[in-house]
Write a protein that binds this DNA or RNA. Structure first.
Length: 497
RNA sequence: UCCGGCGUAGCUCAAUGGUAGAGCGGGUGGCUGUUAACCACUAGGUUGUAGGUUCGAGUCCUACCGCCGGAGCCA
């Protein structure tokens, strides 16, 4: 019978047996401290020299050695977490030597090359647990509302709908592609089963290297029968709020440990901000946005100033420091701060061009990252932008009957610069209009006959959207980069491990 | 594909064009309560690769390779 570290406090003064991995160790001449991690938590285990066998067994245990140990739980405020195990017996399972990841700062390249071990750190396991909770919350949201899970194919035929670049795969001499969405198949299922959703990996072959990009990411996509745009926005709001609610309910302490202020998430309430593309363009060009951007410029200058002061303070602390490792640590902080300052400086030097670009943004162009950041920055909750120009969007989106220049679509921009986390639309449900749109895009209808059948036999208004899991996890956890939100990120030029 | 930054010990980083170093980690010894323990000793290098300039290159120049950030594109 083994006790999980999470529940140790319930066993005060009792004898327990745990198993796990060494997460840290220190030893004195007559006492050794082992930090043991078992996946549920970390516990300090104290081995005294009086326990001769255990003391000898503890000596060769390097970082990440696996072991079982027995001992008595005791409450002691000197222990991290307020409770520890006084060890009576140690049974090593495997003794690890020269574990590569030390208890110190590492570079991104090194960590990604050791992703299989990096997962063992507290921070990475926290993020993956939150990811799990968010995925469960998303699935619960749809399951509880009568949606049926439909698994759509990953291998798909033919060149797709113009949007995005696909990964080609050799299919016995024929070229097929990894799916970039389950949507078209999901629409078929929607006409059969009513409300459905799919959840799976999706692949984009864009040669893009930014903090919001993965070549392989996970997307949850509902398809809703008889839906109009308002149905889609209200389900998007419901879904996002359900995910945030689960994070706040189950992971409040974890979010704080990650440096995420829960208050920023608590502000996310329905209704979200909402405007049309045209209104967004007007807002982008407006004097008030200009004012806000100029104020942002001032705020960033002030931030630069305070960072510079903090840098001076750190440098003074460094000059006074004695311990070599402390100097090292301060050096690292100083470097990080200098990087941050340089980021702000380049950002500031680019800002006038962005401000000017916002003023003169032409109607019809799709928003880039800069515009999204400017627009989303005007709100402290997510922002819907609807009714994009037809030319900027995919063929299957329904043209607005009241304004043929635009389509009935929605994008949801997360606050704080995390970008687009949801994209969706009402689908074109009329056969002739859909065929006209495909012709407009120069598409060959032959491979899409099955899709057109959906409009021939009992077509109904419907629509759906896709929510990108990794960007949502990054936003909710307050992470700088999506690479930490998935166990093994697939990035441009990185396929190991 | 384009723009910018960076490649020095296992890791994180120093080193006016002039003898390649520190901390962490590893090894050895010491210490009864450590919180990234501490103290002493010790091993560890073709400075990304190939050219060039120079009496002399980790440092300057050129090309290539790799990584990071950004743009385009996207969830």
């Amino acid at each position: 019978m083994h006790t999980s570290i999470q529940t140790l406090k319930e066993h005060a003064d009792q004898s327990v047996r745990i198993r796990g991995w060494i997460a840290g160790q220190r030893s004195g001449g007559k006492v050794a401290f082992l930090l043991v991690r078992d996946g549920t938590g970390v516990c300090q285990c104290v081995v005294e020299a009086a326990q001769a066998e255990a003391f000898a067994a503890a000596a060769p245990l390097g970082l990440e050695s696996s072991l079982e140990l027995s001992g008595v739980v005791r409450i002691d405020e000197r222990a991290p977490g307020g409770c520890e195990i006084a060890v009576t017996e140690i049974a090593p399972i495997q003794i690890a030597e020269n574990y590569p990841i030390a208890r110190k700062a590492h570079g991104v390249d090194f960590l990604l090359n050791h992703r299989h071990l990096w997962l063992r750190t507290n921070r990475q396991s926290l993020i993956l647990r939150i990811r799990h909770t968010l995925i469960r919350a998303a699935r619960d949201y749809f399951d509880q509302r009568g949606f049926t899970l439909i698994d759509t194919p990953i291998l798909t035929p033919g060149a797709a709908e113009g949007a995005g670049t696909l990964f080609p795969v050799d299919y016995f001499g024929e070229t097929v592609y990894l799916a970039q969405t389950g949507q078209l198949y999901l629409e078929s299922a929607c006409m059969a089963l009513g409300n459905v959703y799919c959840f799976g990996p999706t692949f984009r072959a864009e040669k893009s290297k930014t903090r919001r990009h993965l070549l392989e990411f996970w997307m949850i996509e509902p398809e809703i029968a008889f839906a109009d745009l308002d149905t889609l926005t209200s389900h998007t709001e419901g879904l996002v709020c359900a995910m945030i609610g689960a994070a706040l309910r189950d992971h409040r302490e974890d979010l704080i440990a990650l440096g995420r202020d829960p208050a920023a998430l608590e502000r996310v309430q329905t209704p979200f901000a909402r405007m049309t593309y045209s209104e967004a363009v007007d807002l982008l060009r407006s004097d008030e946005t200009h004012e806000a951007l100029m104020q942002g410029l001032e705020a960033d200058r002030a931030r630069l100033e305070s960072d510079a002061q903090r840098l001076t303070a750190l440098e003074a602390e460094r000059a006074a420091a004695r311990k070599a490792w402390k100097i090292d640590k301060l050096d690292a902080e100083i470097r990080a701060l200098r990087d941050a300052i340089r980021d702000i400086e380049t950002d500031l030097s680019n800002r006038p061009a962005h401000i000017e670009a916002a003023r003169t943004f032409p109607w019809g162009r799709d928003f880039g990252g800069d515009e999204e950041t400017v627009l989303a920055g005007r709100f402290d909750r997510p922002l819907f932008i609807t009714h994009y120009p037809r030319e900027a969007k995919a063929f299957y989106m329904k043209t607005d009957p009241h304004d043929p220049r635009v389509v009935l679509n929605l994008d949801l921009l997360a606050p704080e610069g995390y970008g687009e986390i949801v994209g969706g639309s009402v689908r074109e449900d009329q056969l002739d209009l859909l065929q006209a749109r495909m012709a407009e895009e120069g598409m060959d209808p032959t491979p899409y006959e099955w899709y057109l059948d959906l409009r021939r036999y009992g077509s109904v208004p419907h629509g759906g959207f896709g929510l990108g899991i990794e960007r949502t996890v990054a936003w909710i956890c307050g992470l700088k980069h999506v690479r930490e939100t998935i166990p093994f990120p697939r990035l441009l030029g990185r396929m190991y491990p």
